[in-house]
């Protein structure tokens, strides 16, 4: 169960895993996620289901190394198994024909954006995709996304690829170009979603963001993922992960995401030290 069938390196520190999970693959709709646990001592982390193959019973997840668990995950290979995979969790994206949809994926957040964008294209929308990253090496799923995008743009902070600047610069260009946009989707760092939402609010364009809160159970039982949307407390795991971008309190989200910054660093350093020590022994 939960065996890794395939693994691809998408960018420096970002891996794609195909995992055998037939029951989840059968049920999953775009926008939903799984919670995984690698081993008995592991923590539970949420990961968006980037893609599925229902026939083969496979789900795809894309993972960037940001701490101990993701570092550990990156060391796993096809044939290895995850101890726990549960899902599909969260509300599926509301997909219909809106007209022109701009999908914005920032960094590894593009893996979250990817299935939603694909779903929007399948529903008959004119799809414009903007993928942004710090630098060229961190752009993921470029070819795959191009395939179904009507327009496709890349931005990098350092200008090493595509347009130099932020995703919001590209979005602004589209907006100022007078393009009629019916919906904007954004998934990526909280700060990016915040600025995308601020911009689209000015233009009065409906904006959906996918929030990456800390979670434990993923079923609405613990409330660690709570976010404020329109001044009301919501649970990202069961009410979301997608919300109206104009209503989200991003500053709170960022503060809550930093809850365990110190512990995360400690766990990561300890893990890396262990690996180093192991290397020395050999």
């Amino acid at each position: 169960m939960n065996q890794i069938i395939d693994k691809k390196r998408l960018a420096e520190g970002i891996n794609l895993f195909e995992i055998e999970a037939p029951l989840i693959a059968r049920k999953r709709k775009p926008g939903q996620f799984v919670i995984i646990r690698i081993d008995e001592n592991g923590e539970r982390i949420p990961l968006t289901i980037a893609d599925v193959n229902k026939e083969k019973g496979i789900i795809t997840i894309v993972v960037q190394v940001v701490g101990k668990t993701t570092e550990h995950l990156g060391t796993l290979s096809p044939g290895d198994s995850l101890l726990d995979v549960v899902g599909p969790l969260g509300q599926p994206t509301h997909i219909e024909k809106f007209g022109t949809v701009v999908a914005i994926g920032g960094g590894v957040g593009h893996a979250v954006c990817f299935p939603i964008a694909k779903g929007m294209k399948d529903a008959g929308n004119y799809l414009i995709t903007i993928v942004g990253a710090r630098t060229k090496g961190l752009i993921i799923l470029e070819e795959e996304t191009k395939k179904f995008s009507d327009e496709f743009y890349i931005t990098t902070d350092d200008g090493s690829y595509g347009k130099k600047g932020l995703v919001t610069d590209q979005l602004k260009e589209l907006l100022e170009g007078g393009k009629k946009i019916d919906l904007v989707l954004a998934a990526g760092p909280a700060i990016m979603m915040k600025f995308v939402s601020l911009m689209t609010k000015e233009y009065g364009i409906k904006t959906i963001v996918s929030l990456n809160s800390i979670m434990v159970d993923g079923t609405g039982m613990c409330g660690v993922c709570r976010v404020e949307v329109g001044g009301k407390t919501k649970f990202a795991c069961v009410d979301g992960p997608e919300f109206d971008g104009h209503e989200v309190n991003y500053d709170l989200l960022m503060k809550r995401l930093a809850t365990y910054k110190e512990e995360e660093k400690l766990a990561y350093d300890r893990y890396m030290q262990k690996i180093k020590d192991k290397g020395k022994e050999m």
Partner: peptide, 14 residues
């Protein structure tokens, strides 16, 4: 999640 055994177990609790 056995946070009382952190960092032996990965889940923290402050």
């Amino acid at each position: 999640m056995k946070a009382y055994l952190f960092p032996e177990y990965d889940t923290p609790l402050r």
